[in-house]
Design a protein around this nucleic acid. Structure first.
Length: 264
DNA sequence: ATTGCTTCCTGAGCGC
DNA sequence: TGCGCTCAGGAAGCAA
């Protein structure tokens, strides 16, 4: 569920709440949630919290990385009452100061990997560029798309090309570019590639400013909803602002919303 | 190499 | 009220 802006909002919250706290214990309620890639060891203090694509990276003073992926329904909720829990709590990170971070996940696709610091690169090596970085420009996109016949929608969802976009933001970005999501990657012209780069950055920045998009499950670390759902133009909509009906089709097994009048 | 199909799992919403 | 069906924001693994 969470895409880049939601993950970024969570990171911002975590930086307020758990930076410099010492990890006392990690409890796994549902087997398979925590993946220990090293023998069990003391983790130390949380020294940095950052994001790569949709992954959350916690680094500790003992040179250990915790890499968290929330997938569809994962949430991280900061809690000061150690006795509080919920039906979908899959794991908890308990801090020495008697606070905790609950990993809540209805559909159980989310994971927490624990590994040595040096293995961080391996975990991220298949990810494409960060959409908000300078590396992501029309030249990069042109190179990525030149041999691809897949629909542009599918390509933008591919984390190996661009790390962080999901179904909602791809729909919104293509709408703002007025590009048909079914268009083949290699058929787009330079002007269109520039539009994709521009709108990817502006949509993501706007969404981060509004603390992400809450359609159903997503919540911040403080269990608050985002607000960007109020600014969506096509995703989940029936009617376009031009008055035409929004089309809903399946691409790569996922629903795609677009306006056949505005996007072509 | 690229593309698309299936799968993991739970819950909400719909029609009957 | 309840049953069965479809759908859901992700991505790895596999086959063609």
């Amino acid at each position: 569920m969470p895409e880049l802006p939601e993950v970024q909002t969570i990171i911002n919250g975590l930086n307020q709440k758990i930076l410099r706290k010492e990890i006392q214990e990690i409890i796994e309620f549902r087997p398979g949630t925590i993946i220990w890639q090293i023998p069990f060891t003391s983790l130390g203090k949380v020294v940095s919290i950052s994001r790569r694509g949709k992954y959350i990276l916690l680094q500790t003073s003992n040179k250990i990385n915790l890499i968290i992926h929330l997938r569809m329904t994962g949430k991280l909720v900061f809690e000061t009452d150690l006795s509080k829990s919920s039906t979908h709590s899959r794991a908890e990170i308990i801090f020495r100061d008697k606070t905790k971070l609950i990993f809540n996940d209805i559909r159980t696709f989310g994971k927490i990997q624990i590994m040595k610091k040096d293995e961080e690169i391996a975990a991220f090596q298949n990810l494409g560029v960060e959409p908000l970085s300078e590396e992501f420009d029309a030249k990069y996109l042109r190179n990525e798309l030149k041999n691809k016949k897949a629909p542009i929608k599918n390509i933008l969802l591919d984390q190996r090309v661009l790390a962080g976009l999901g179904n909602i933001y791809v729909a919104e970005i293509l709408f703002r570019c007025k590009i048909d999501p079914r268009k083949q990657g290699n058929e787009l012209d330079l002007k269109q590639l520039k539009l994709i780069v521009l709108h990817t950055k502006t949509v993501l920045e706007e969404a981060i400013k509004h603390n992400g998009t809450t359609i159903s499950d997503y919540r911040s670390v403080e269990d608050k909803s985002g607000e960007f759902q109020n600014f969506l133009k096509v995703y989940g909509k029936k009617t376009c602002e031009c008055g035409a009906e929004i089309s809903k089709i399946k691409q790569a097994g996922r629903s795609t919303y677009f306006c056949a009048v505005c996007q072509n």
